[in-house]
């Protein structure tokens, strides 16, 4: 199964040996009509025994932040945490902090703060070193710096995604599976803190009436249309 396998294509997406197929696909697209089969409108998922349902691919942070891109322009700079983190003594906190800092990287990307992004890239390297996985993120850290200087924000996101996956992969190889999960958890915690703050502020600006606290907000974080407002 390929799930979870790191492939070197993301971001670069270069296929030096496969150009032929690209041309072929383009030609086929032009010459042959695209057919669609007729899938059933409804299926019973219970027909697929557990063994036939493959492992869930966990969303990467940039996939979540892609949703946030559509929220308009929240004040991301206000969400940035100030100061430099100190490397903790214990590995549990270091693992959590590493995930936390990677998530902070995404906030800095949203804020388009190149200096902060570079600083966070360096912090990722320092924290990775403290849990013996520095090697796995050296190249990522450099790419984060390079792409932040070029203000290639999409590229920086890919590198932070990659850093998270590389760190986890390296920790899994060291049989540090639990610590590896803590890295993801640390990222989730920081991401949730920031997102709930932004969504909360958006809700406040959407609804200024005294009854706003009883008004629901759509899970997407957008101000709901009048018809979608359902008091709980």
């Amino acid at each position: 199964m390929l799930h979870g396998k790191a492939l070197p294509c993301e971001g670069n997406f270069q296929f030096p040996a496969k150009g032929f197929f690209t041309v072929l696909l383009a030609l086929l697209a032009g010459l042959a009509p695209l057919h669609a089969d007729n899938p059933p409108k409804k299926i019973a998922l219970s027909d697929f025994p557990a063994a036939a349902v493959q492992e869930v691919v966990v969303p990467v942070p940039s996939e979540i932040f892609a949703v946030l891109d559509k929220l308009g322009n929240p004040n991301w700079k206000a969400q940035l945490r100030e100061g430099k983190v100190r490397t903790p003594e214990d590995r549990v906190r270091t693992a959590l902090l590493l995930g936390n800092v990677i998530a902070e990287g995404f906030v800095a990307v949203e804020a388009e703060d190149a200096e902060r992004v570079k600083e966070l890239g360096r912090q990722v390297l320092t924290l990775a070193e403290a849990i013996n996985v520095r090697k796995s993120v050296i190249a990522r850290s450099k790419s984060i710096t390079d792409k932040a200087e070029q203000r290639d924000w999409r590229g920086v996101r890919v590198e932070f995604d990659g850093a998270l996956q590389d760190v986890r992969g390296a920790m899994d190889e060291l049989n540090d599976h639990d610590l590896s999960q803590l890295v993801s958890l640390g990222g989730w915690l920081r991401g949730t803190e920031v997102l709930t703050n932004i969504v909360g502020r958006m809700a406040l600006s959407c609804f200024t009436s005294p009854s706003s606290s009883t008004t629901s907000i759509a899970a997407s974080g957008r101000c709901p249309a009048a018809s979608a407002v359902t008091p709980l």
């Binding site: 949730t192 709930t196 899970a219």
Partner: peptide, 15 residues
């Protein structure tokens, strides 16, 4: 699918 602002605020404070 819908969550109230006060619940969002609670999650924010906890995290």
């Amino acid at each position: 699918d819908h969550i109230t602002p006060d619940k969002v605020a609670t999650i924010h404070e906890l995290t």
